[in-house]
Amino acid sequence: MADLLLTNGRAMREAYLADVRRKRMYGGILLVLFIALMASGFRLAEDRNAGGFLVGIGQILDFPAEVVAEGWAKRAEIPGLLVSFFPSLIETINIAAVSTIFGALAAIVLALLSTRGLARWPRLIPVFRRLMDAMRAVPEIVIALILIFILGGGPVPAMIAIAIHTAGALGKLFSEVAENADLKPVEGLQSVGATWLQRMWIGVVPQVAPNWLSYGLLRFEINIRASAILGFVGSGGIGHDLKLAMQWGQGKYDQVVAIFALLFITIVIVDQISGRARTRLVKGAS
């Protein structure tokens, strides 16, 4: 009996150790594969780059130093430039805000239509889900550049492009929140003959509003960055001014300093405010 136990125990131990060895080997192989992938990928990327890594790393501070030096030399003009670029900054923020609002409104509709248990037409859930996938998959720059061709320059193309992407991205998150909503109020409302719109508005929206708002604020932070980038590539807002100043090059670096400063301050402030608000919404409401 004791013998049997001992052999059994030994077999178990052997099996366990073999298992551990195998796991370690798989882990090791994966690690080696990953390192090889990273190294060869980096080599390839460096090969196809105009400048090499070692040359570039030495020059990395040249441009910031140049910009800062020129900015310092013309420091008396910086406050004036900050004021003169302020309207562009407002435009960038407006693009982000409007596209977040429109995107979020569309996302609410899409999310409710694609959530199991809440959907108006349960059979169409996959359709609305794929629609949101497609809206998320098309990069903003594609829509923005095409719309610039049709609508001309200005903030509207960027606004529409970001709104479409926001609708797709928020729709998915909103739907995940709504899935966890309590269905009892909805059933109660149904029993008294409420329409679908009433059931959603009175039964679901109050439950999920804090989480939705929190995701919306997070999206607003992301959209400010997106709207600055789209301005640089396309048109509208402070990104466009930055592109003009960069194209001019030396001599306009005081403008670059002013725009960098405005962007940095805006992003930090919005991050801080929305971070606080989000913690309060999610933790304070529960």
Partner: peptide, 17 residues
């Protein structure tokens, strides 16, 4: 956006940047 501009000044155009 700003990092991209700074880095493309140092490394030139390409995927590494």
């Amino acid at each position: 956006l700003i990092w991209t501009i700074i880095l493309s000044r140092a490394f030139g155009p390409g995927p590494m940047t």
